[in-house]
């Protein structure tokens, strides 16, 4: 039997009286591209952050690549090295140019010698089509370019899985395409990806599974074909209809 690369078991998270996640269990296999959709405030981002323990769940257990991250004895910094995370608001290191944004993790976290780190960083920039921008600072890049550098930064660590938290939601519409292209390429290369996104074109094209969440629970999940053509719940149909109208067009 093949072990799932990500396993969540009955994850609960609340902030004060607000229950954000009400018992989420999920298994993701290597190479799967899982797209999580759902109305805002539903706990999609919180769920993603629970995977790499950026948010620590109140209860429940998380395994990534065979390591239980919710085990208090686990070295979380070591575990996070191989879980790539891409933020909605990008969060490139503002004082470092594109190249150093990528190489700093290699040097500090993986202990790679500076010349090797530079070489690897340039390679990763090339992978996202930005090798010409190596010397530019975040303030000199467009939103789409910044997000591609952020993806390259995560990829440089040779992640086993990549988590995307609404990577295109803060971008101008005409810049979304270039980021989605990079993500699609990654998906086709076989990367395990969990993406919170409303880009239905992307979901249709590369997702192996779509998960619809609402009010802290998984309402329904299935293949894109099944979810788009024949959702079991009216709520799913209604939501998919709405976001396809809003987000689907420019990527089709």
């Amino acid at each position: 039997m093949v072990e799932p690369i990500i396993r969540l078991d009955n994850i609960h998270k609340s902030y004060g009286k607000d229950d954000i996640l009400k018992g989420i269990s999920l298994e993701i296999m290597e190479g799967e591209v899982v797209v999580i959709i759902g109305p805002s405030g539903t706990g999609k981002s919180t769920l993603l952050r629970c995977i790499n323990q950026l948010t620590v769940p109140n209860s429940g257990r998380v395994w990534v690549d065979g390591v239980e991250l919710t085990d208090p004895k686990v070295d979380i910094n070591k575990a996070r090295r191989h879980i790539g995370f891409v933020f909605q608001d990008v969060n490139l290191f503002n004082h470092l140019n594109a190249l150093n944004n990528i190489s700093i993790g290699l040097k500090l976290v993986l202990g790679m010698p500076a010349p090797n780190a530079k070489e690897k960083a340039l390679l990763e920039l090339k992978r996202v089509g930005l090798e010409q921008k190596a010397d530019l600072y975040p303030g000199q890049l467009s939103g789409g370019q910044k997000q591609r550098v952020a993806i390259a930064r995560a990829l440089a660590m040779d992640p086993r899985v990549m988590l995307f938290d609404e990577p295109t939601s803060a971008l101008d519409p005409e810049l979304i395409g270039e980021v989605l292209e990079v993500m699609k390429k990654l998906a086709r290369e076989g990367m395990t990806m969990v993406c919170v996104t409303h880009e239905m074109g992307f979901a249709r094209e590369v997702a192996s599974r779509i998960i619809f969440m609402e009010h802290g629970v998984v309402v329904e999940e299935g293949s894109p074909e099944q979810m788009f053509a024949n959702p079991q719940f009216n709520r799913t149909r209604e939501f998919l209809g709405k976001i396809s109208e809003l987000y689907g067009k420019h990527t089709e």
Partner: peptide, 15 residues
């Protein structure tokens, strides 16, 4: 976000 991004790469808080 800067701290979060650093931590997701596996940096310690001190780093």
């Amino acid at each position: 976000g800067q701290m979060m991004a650093a931590r997701t790469l596996g940096m310690t808080r001190l780093q």
